[in-house]
Design a protein around this nucleic acid. Structure first.
Length: 290
DNA sequence: AAGACACCCAACCGCCAACAG
DNA sequence: GCTGTTGGCGGTTGGGTGTCT
């Protein structure tokens, strides 16, 4: 089965399904940009002992999510990748639960979804993170924390898993080297340096001032000629629309992210957003612009 | 040459929200 | 409102690989 023109499969040697070797370490940042995705367990004997990988990998992590017997786990083989790509190319992304059977894969749906989303999607950007991407990730993380999927949404071609890994392996170290705590984004030594937004909150309860400070602090505009990466914040107080008869009507809600929560405003009067759930940041307001 | 160590990252897990019946 | 299913998310794991001693 041949899947022509798939950007990632095409990178591989047709004979060995092995990606380019991982770079030597340690790397400087610039060196890391030359790095290719080493991925992979593709040279792992597991791949070639397919399809009975289950027993060799059951020691990793917790108990399997799928009770299905004879379900492959661990690294994907070239054949499995090709089947998955071919199926999705033909039928699109549909019901992940039923996809494995329909595609003739001995995998659970979750595994198929993960493989596609994080590795096989044709729109994925391969290669190293740029300085601009680094800064975007840092700025967004300062705003929203470990919301990797949201951050990934602002970096076309990057996956949440990739960003998460990159954060844990590179950016944490980078921030530590700068003397910044990766979790709090505050200086490690000296301890009590307030961020602009905290200063504004502390000095008064003027939420407008706090938001303005936060916007000033976290605005990051990187004009790369292709993408306007300006990040800004605004409060959930939008001007009312005025109808022709002069009556003011409330603004309509839009699907947005509540930064009030992360900035500590939530629960106060300033936060009028209504989060749909305890862990979803799907309502409220944010000001990403493109 | 070989063992120890460090690093990377794909793939796993449990949890949770959304949805359908 | 309850229950089961599904998709999506963030945290974690551990095998492969490069470097160091």
């Amino acid at each position: 089965m041949q899947i022509p023109n798939h950007p990632f499969l095409g990178m591989r040697s047709s004979s060995s399904y092995r990606p380019q070797p991982a770079p030597s370490r340690p790397q400087s940042h610039s060196q890391s940009h030359i790095r290719t995705r080493s991925s992979l367990l593709l040279s792992s004997p597991l791949l070639h002992s397919h399809p009975t990988q289950v027993s060799t990998l059951t020691t990793m992590g917790r108990s399997p999510c799928c009770e299905q017997a004879h379900t492959n786990r661990g690294a994907w083989t070239k054949e499995e990748d090709e089947r998955l790509i071919a199926y999705i190319n033909a039928h699109g992304e549909g019901c992940w639960r039923s996809l494995p059977k329909a595609a003739g894969l001995l995998r659970c749906g979750k595994s198929c979804r993960l493989r596609w989303m994080n590795y096989l999607r044709p729109d994925l950007k391969r290669g190293n993170f740029t300085e601009e991407e680094d800064e975007i990730i840092i700025n967004l993380h300062a705003l929203i924390g470990n919301k990797w999927s949201v951050i990934a949404g602002r970096l076309p071609g990057r996956t949440d898993n990739e960003i998460k890994n990159y954060w844990n392996t590179h950016i944490k170290r980078k921030l530590n080297a700068r003397g910044i705590d990766p979790q709090t984004h505050r200086p490690i030594a000296g301890g009590c340096v307030r961020t602009a937004e905290e200063e504004a909150v502390a000095s008064s309860n003027d939420i407008d001032a706090a938001a303005a400070a936060a916007e000033e602090e976290h605005s990051s505009s990187v004009d790369d000629g292709d993408l306007d990466l300006t990040i800004s914040l605004r409060l959930p107080s939008r001007p009312f629309k005025t109808s022709p008869d002069g009556a003011a009507t409330p603004p309509t809600a839009s699907p947005t992210i509540c930064f009030c929560y992360h900035l500590g405003f939530r629960g106060g009067e300033a936060c009028s957003c209504h989060r749909a759930s305890s862990s979803g940041y799907v309502s409220g307001y944010y000001g990403f612009t493109r």
